[in-house]
Design a protein around this nucleic acid. Structure first.
Lengths: 193, 193
DNA sequence: TAGCACATGTAACTTGTTACATGATTAG
DNA sequence: CTAATCATGTAACAAGTTACATGTGCTA
């Protein structure tokens, strides 16, 4: 069982879903911080079934669509998920290609790089906006249901809070570099006169 | 040429180094945000030589140590590096396993999870401290050399600034979750009475 | 005398991405 | 008529990790 398998288990612990639905949910909620393609999901689900952590039932579809397989977590699966959550996590590596480019920024054209940084800022601001909207959506959903499993919703909220602060930090860093680049250009111009 | 090759080029553009030295420098400076093992570095360097982006000279070692290969960036290599830096970067995925565990936090034992979060906080605080120290070291190095390629040092500084703010953000988020867990425990205790 | 620093590499394995494959329905 | 949505999968490839391999000199 690898991380992907536990991600799927974590979602199935909230509600039973098909592989397709899992892919969609993952793209929407986890897209920017853990991209998973459907080609990974299907073998992983088969693995989970083989390990006895999930079962599935085939739903015959109307309108002659391909049959659905709805996956459900088993008790063994819940135990495995819990063990994974409680186990120590090895330190994360960020692996951000853009930061590495920034490290070699000095070899590139400064004016061009201002454009590149503006692009990145726009991208992360868009993500920020998206996450803020999703947080709002979760909040209203949370208020609507006064009973039930509210804790799982609180955790989803906390994840969005993290991604929001992450994107805010990213944008403000990019802005800092951009200001540096602009200032330097200014200084160069003064030198020339 | 993949990202790894350009990372190596980016370092070699600053100073010629051996594979072993590259591995050491990468571990020290890039460790927490782009881990690279030496087993990846050697084939990548061979690839760079084949592409004509680097050359190397063999340095015979005293004390009967294995011979060193010192790699140097070529003009073609500098061009390739620049093209990579100036090219648009596809959006980063964070891929943080701990966040995914947090998403499934509600299935685990709350008291145990407080311990897990305290561990993470300690880890990231340690990293934060490390980065702050390295930033200081870069600053003194930067002030010491009044001439030369100061811009590459400025960029290295900016990277450390990013990692520092990243870790600060991470720690403060973990603290938020921890407070939530503590509060919830408190509430449960009151309920019981 | 055990382990670490130096120095370079290969091979097997795991994980993730891209391309391919099928096939109906519905909206623009 | 083209693209998107629904729905599941396989296969080839790229990237990254772990284990193995060699050999000396220094330190605890």
């Amino acid at each position: 069982m690898n991380t992907l398998a536990y991600i799927l288990l974590g979602i199935l612990a909230r509600e039973p879903l098909s592989g397709y639905d899992l892919a969609r949910l993952l793209k929407k909620h986890f897209g920017p911080f853990w991209a998973i393609s459907h080609t990974q999901i299907y073998p992983a689900l088969a693995q989970l079934v083989e390990a006895g952590f999930t079962t599935y039932e085939i739903i015959e579809q109307q309108a002659r669509r391909p049959d659905k397989k709805i996956y459900q977590i088993t008790e063994a699966g819940q135990g495995a998920l819990r063990a994974w959550v409680e186990a120590p996590t090895s330190p994360t590596v960020i692996r951000d290609e853009f930061l590495l480019k920034a490290y070699s920024l000095w070899v590139a054209d400064p004016e061009h790089m201002q454009g590149i940084f503006r692009e990145q800022i726009a991208l992360h601001q868009e993500r920020l906006f998206m996450h803020e909207q999703e947080l709002e959506a979760k909040r209203t959903k949370y208020l609507a249901m006064s009973q039930g499993n509210s804790e799982s919703l609180v955790m989803a909220e906390l994840i969005f809070k993290y991604t929001i602060s992450y994107e805010q930090n990213y944008v403000s860093w990019c802005n800092g570099v951009l200001h540096y680049l602009e200032q330097r250009e200014e200084a160069h111009r003064v030198e020339e006169i």
